[in-house]
Design a protein around this nucleic acid. Structure first.
Lengths: 343, 343
DNA sequence: TTGTACGCGTTATCAT
DNA sequence: ATGATAACGCGTACAA
């Protein structure tokens, strides 16, 4: 029986060449005759030899690891984005190191620091809002970095995402077209989800210009889940003052919860109240009353992002940032099907 | 300006000690005076020195990487399991390398091989059905391995999961108690999801004993999604022969799709037809008509599993396999609330 | 408590 | 085309 894990030495001895020749053959680089190469490959397979990745990373001073930090995996959005990327990375022979920041930029920063210790081939971050040291560390380490799901003019390296402020403005314009005037927004605490805040700001600006100066804002202290949507909506409906005629939610999950709560309170949707989500999740296709929402091309972002990062890793030329478009989908939870539908 | 990435040598020179003393101080092991230790730590921070993980892994001949292979992240189930594990692994200082096998055991086997090249501290696999070489490679490499979500008597190393066959039998007993006699099962192709096949087998065995010898089986060629549930249900209802009085689905996703399709076909649920899912997803709390389903403790499995694997990594004693219980949740999609509800 | 010598398994460089 | 030698940055074993 051979030893547990044969080393490159064993292969070299078996074939009768130096370890350098084996190394070259295994990596598929030039400098080995075709005959020797296949002989070496056969011997390696027979012995069960596999190159040690940690040794390879040390010698090459960079690994084939790609670090990916996502806020959460419970949100279908990030699962989609991840799925869009992983196929490309996988095909290129990279391994994925995953982090969940829980929407906490401090956690993200600590993880980036640890990740750099692995000398990764690249790093993927969610959004463009990070702790200040993250940018500096990644840049000075010279690690190709992709920021995904949001965009800005000065990314750490490259970025691909949607324009959240513009998406918020699209929603605002649609609400005005519907004639809504008593609007509420249900989200999470500030600083938890910077993208959501950008959408909210966009929404508010358009409503203000359209003659709706004030909107009611409720923020859950918990995750943007079904339950949180239910709870905040219940509180919203119970509160004194004029009842909103339309509620916008941070995402579809919260909107489903809100829709459910409104109907349980005897409100008819969309006759009595409008409901607007964000993301366009798959379940929408199944519901009797599909949500009015913004459809975000998550998979596409992942695919494009992976291509961009791979190009950076290979020192090829790429655009520094890409903005993908979003579309509003007028569903059955608002009282008018917008002009977008009429195309 | 200091060089890009200071090495342990730089710290040693700055403080005036050998690199071994720095190494010990950084790792927090004994053999360094308190004074020198804090001096070294300060110098390291000032210089921005961070130990190179690939070098550390090579020298120690094992890394702080933990490989995790999951079939998919679109299924809330595996996102839950992952979330249950990651907190524990993260707290223990491990980094997570993620793979998605797409329910393909060949893919899984290839990934395991690549993962071993990283000399991981541990590996997590989904279920207990793997390509034969996986067990052998993991064992001969001596890598602590956790199999999660299913269980068996002879795991590769340790395992934690539910008893899928028993879960299927629970469903069968419940259906018999409800008086259903024309049962259908909607799943995916064989060999795609071994756990689902075990549940189906358990279901069939109990029904057979209860006087229901035959059930209709439909298998989608696609993922077990909302859409697949809709498509197969549509085909099921269109088929000749007696219409089923109850349809069991591979999971809640397909069941939602099926429920929606039945109602669109004018069938009243549960008056005309029963619908049974599997997993107990969060959205159930929001729906007007909660599914009858089996609630699986995913987070718990993750937590327990992580503890078990960490114990193995630390060479502590642990049970080789743990089976966690599941409970049937009688919802509003079957015509009787089972005895489980009466407790 | 501290330091020295060596090894971890591979790749880069420079010979031949 | 092939090989010898020196890194890569750290941990282990042992000596002082």
């Amino acid at each position: 029986m051979a030893r547990q894990t044969p080393s490159i030495q064993d292969v070299a001895r078996t074939v009768g060449v130096s370890i350098m020749t084996v190394s070259r053959a295994m990596r598929g680089v030039e400098g080995v005759s075709a005959a020797k190469r296949s002989e070496i490959l056969n011997a390696a397979k027979a012995l069960g030899y596999r190159p040690n990745r940690t040794a390879r990373s040390l010698a090459a001073s960079h690994s084939t690891l790609i670090g990916i930090s996502l806020p959460t995996l419970f949100n279908e959005v990030f699962a989609d984005i991840l799925d869009g990327m992983r196929r490309a990375f996988d095909a290129a022979g990279f391994d994925l190191v995953l982090d969940n920041s829980d929407y906490d930029s401090r956690r993200e920063a600590l993880w980036v620091e640890r990740m750099i210790d692995w000398r990764p081939a690249g790093v993927v971050l969610s959004g463009v809002d990070h702790a200040p040291e993250v940018r500096e560390q990644l840049r000075s380490a010279g690690i190709p970095t992709l920021e995904i799901w949001d965009h800005c003019d000065d990314p750490i390296d490259v970025c691909v995402g949607i324009d959240h402020a513009a998406a918020g403005r699209q929603i605002g314009a649609y609400l005005l077209a519907c004639g809504y005037g008593e609007v509420a927004f249900v989200g999470v605490e500030e600083n938890r989800d910077p993208r959501a805040e950008k959408r909210l700001a966009g929404l508010q600006s358009v409503l203000r210009e359209g003659g709706v100066p004030q909107i009611t804002i409720r923020r859950s202290e918990r995750h943007a889940s079904f339950e949180a949507g239910m709870n905040e909506t219940r509180a919203l409906l119970a509160a004194a003052g004029r009842r909103p005629d339309c509620i916008c939610y941070l995402n579809d999950h919260m909107a489903f919860g809100g829709l459910s709560t409104c109907e349980r309170h005897g409100l008819s949707v969309p006759a009595d109240i409008g409901i607007v989500g964000f993301n366009g999740l798959g379940i929408n296709a199944v519901l009797a009353k599909p949500l009015t929402t913004i459809i975000t091309p998550r998979l596409l972002m992942g695919t494009i992002g992976a291509r961009m990062l791979l190009a950076r890793i290979n020192r090829a030329k790429v655009e520094r940032h890409v903005v993908v478009p979003v579309a509003i989908s007028a569903g059955a939870t608002t009282r008018m099907r917008g002009p977008e539908r009429a195309g």
